[in-house]
Design a protein around this nucleic acid. Structure first.
Lengths: 269, 269
DNA sequence: CGTCTCGTTGAACTAGTTCAAGTACCGTGG
DNA sequence: CCACGGTACTTGAACTAGTTCAACGAGACG
């Protein structure tokens, strides 16, 4: 084994390394070689743990990095001139946020941890430098943007032609899908956010959300107890939202793995 | 003058060249040198004229290029599984569309010319190759994506907390702003699209759009005659949409010039 | 000339909001 | 341990913005 390779292996041989991450590299470029991975880690990545309600970045503050949730959950909120707050998205492990900051050099929203959460911070400038040398990295960056663009557009369409019930059901199914993608139980989960946040996110009054949830429970489609949700009849739920492709509804949805299967790391040495 | 330089000048010395474009390079990277510009043109750019209602690209068809409107106007439409059509955006000269296609390798919507329009087609693969050698080009590509992301997010927020009147007024002011950016008369223009399209785009019933337009006319805020619009009292209109930053509301809005002033081309020879 | 698309206007209806009251829960401090 | 205050959530009743249905007018096109 040459010296170069052993250097990279050293860099990757830590408990916090991407190589040992429980997310199984859902978030990084699909065809990452061992060396590329190490370069990203050494040059650009930083791991930080935030307490519940801690701010990860603030709207208008200078853009430096984008972020990937490692554990916990995050919400992003935009405040407009009138002072109205709008919840833009919820982010679960493996999902990426903060991309909108590149163009203006400032973040377009405020990101807050919804519970104690560990976040990977990826320095954009350094990643960009790397991508000049690694074409697959450049490809990955552009694809990440395009994917997020698709997600937001899907969300826009969704909001524009769905009823209150479709929105709430769609929201539940979306969260469920995102749990499944991480190989977690898909029909039973805890919502990290308050009803107000869900309502705000879906463009509804919080009373409407509450009413719809209790109605769904009466129809035995779901069981809901505070923030704990159980989807009892997923087929019934799916039939309520026939219009749009629900597989990945929400703006928050980010999953590099979708589309192309992940390739294992290239063997070296 | 050396041979190299005269080659590039040759490439740019045509009536269809970016150098002679009436848009004044609103669409291309801000700090383009003469040589960069020529490389883009020779390698990646193609100019095509479409008749009214002609399809520029179709949803699901393979992604190859993105597009910039040179003259005329374009709408993008998404069709979901139920068959519902949703108008995603309207694009005026200098504005870019088709970016969402990168991630899946297929276009996410169908783009149609709303009138006889000339469109610049930029081959994505070739542009990507170029950007490996030209860092400013890579920067430009990423920024273009981020900008579009911002625009779509802004649209989503806009749709989620505005009333029907705010949407219609916001729409008119947005179109007006986009005309101003091209140094055209800002308070008098022709809408290229039907009421149905506006309504669909804004998530309203077409009757609602029609009613609001006539109401605004009765209040002497606008004068409307078919598709010809005159904004009589822009201040009054602005006061109706106090909440969101209106400067660049719509998803369709794309303007590379905003933010950083354009630099003139680098002198050579 | 009829036919077709596009736009306007009126009247009835309804999904979802707003206002208001009440309940359940949770941590804090006595 | 309970009392306290605050937040999160539910439920009811009144209201309204916007939709839906339906009729009609005006211009465009063969």
């Amino acid at each position: 084994m040459n010296q170069q390779a052993s250097y990279w292996i050293g860099a990757l041989n830590t408990p916090r390394s991407c190589l040992n991450c429980q997310l199984g590299h859902l978030c990084l470029p699909g065809q990452s070689t061992f060396e590329q991975l190490a370069r990203i880690e050494v040059a650009a990545r930083q791991q930080i743990t935030y307490n519940s309600k801690a701010t990860i970045f603030s709207q208008w503050s200078p853009f430096t990095s984008f972020f990937i949730v490692k554990s916990g959950s995050v919400k992003t909120v935009h405040v407009n001139r009138r002072g109205d707050e709008k919840v833009l998205g919820f982010y679960l492990p493996s999902e990426m946020f903060g991309l909108e900051g590149v163009v203006n050099g400032t973040y377009g929203c405020t990101a807050t941890a919804m519970e104690r959460s560990t976040i990977c911070r990826l320095n954009f400038e350094k990643l960009q430098e790397l991508s000049c040398r690694l074409p697959s990295m450049q490809q990955w960056l552009l694809k990440s943007f395009s994917r997020e663009l698709n997600n937001v557009e899907r969300m826009t369409r969704w909001l524009s032609y769905s009823t209150a019930e479709e929105r709430v059901v769609g929201f539940l199914l979306d969260i469920s899908n995102r749990h499944r993608k991480r190989h977690l139980i898909e029909n039973q989960f805890r919502l990290g956010m308050a009803r107000t946040d869900i309502a705000n996110y879906l463009g509804l009054a919080l009373e409407t959300v509450s009413r719809i949830l209790t109605r769904l429970q009466k129809e035995n489609a779901i069981r809901i107890c505070g923030r704990h949700v159980e989807l009892l009849d997923i087929e019934l739920l799916r039939n309520r939202v026939s219009g749009e492709n629900l597989q990945q509804m929400a703006a928050g949805t980010f999953d590099s793995a979708s589309g192309q299967p992940h390739q294992s790391f290239v063997q070296i040495g």
